[in-house]
């Protein structure tokens, strides 16, 4: 897996800190083993006590229980020591992490300072001024060019809009239901029919006007 990569990245040498942590962890493992042993002895003593009680041998049972008591005491001490060791190991490991964080921060700070050195305020100000000038020039150019374009464009747009409106009105008229017979309804439909027509009329006029407008500059 990643033969080239692993060859490139030679692992850093084992430091004395690593060795110290290993010593602590080895001691911890030994204590854990000792704890296991104490536990088995303890269980065994309890078993012996029960056995002796069954045999009505009170003295031996008492002795076994006393032994068990002693083992329990030891077990507690071992537990405390284990806790101590683990605390110490975690402290060391945490300190190592902190050290790495600090180194990371240092490196970051250095890079930031170097970058800042490359970017002097006067340079930036000058650059910003130049940019502003360039933008202003560009705007001027755009205005010059677009100024001529607007009139023609507007006329075309208006013409197209009017055409669309007209088409829409035509559709509406087509879709309208046929006129039913009856006085009241008749009145109502008349209103509805005249309305789009009235709307369409000025639109047509507008379209014509726009057409004229479009032709005018061409004629001139």
């Amino acid at each position: 897996m990643g033969g080239a990569l692993s060859k490139q990245k030679r692992p850093p040498a084992v430091s004395t800190k690593d060795r110290a942590v290993l010593e602590l962890k080895v001691q911890r493992d030994k204590l854990k083993q000792y704890e296991k042993k104490l536990q088995t002895v303890l269980d065994r003593e309890l078993q012996v006590a029960r056995e002796q009680l069954r045999l009505k041998n009170h003295h031996a049972a008492r002795l076994a229980l006393a032994k068990k008591k002693y083992q329990e005491q030891l077990l507690r001490q071992v537990g405390d020591q284990l806790l101590n060791l683990e605390q110490l190991t975690s402290s060391i490991e945490y300190a190592m992490v902190e050290q790495q964080v600090l180194e990371g921060l240092k490196a970051g700070n250095q890079v930031l300072q170097e970058l800042n050195k490359e970017m002097r305020i006067e340079d930036v100000e000058k650059l910003m001024d130049d940019t502003a000038d360039a933008i202003a020039y560009q705007n001027e150019l755009a205005e010059l060019i677009s100024g001529k374009m607007t009139e023609e464009d507007e006329a075309e747009i208006m013409a197209q809009l009017d055409e669309l409106v007209e088409q829409e009105n035509a559709e509406v008229i087509k879709v309208l239901p046929s006129v039913p017979k009856g006085d009241k309804v008749d009145q109502h439909v008349e209103d509805a029919e005249t309305a789009p027509a009235a709307e369409a009329a000025p639109a047509k006029a507008k379209a014509k006007q726009a057409q004229k407008k479009l032709e005018e500059p061409l004629a001139a």
């Binding site: 990643g2 692993s6 030679r10 692992p11 690593d18 060795r19 290993l22 010593e23 080895v26 493992d29």
Partner: peptide, 20 residues
Amino acid sequence: KQGKAQIFNSSDGNAGVKFI
């Protein structure tokens, strides 16, 4: 061999591994 671990011994000969 893959460069993911280093083995070293404690003073009393117990092996320890540092994983990279």
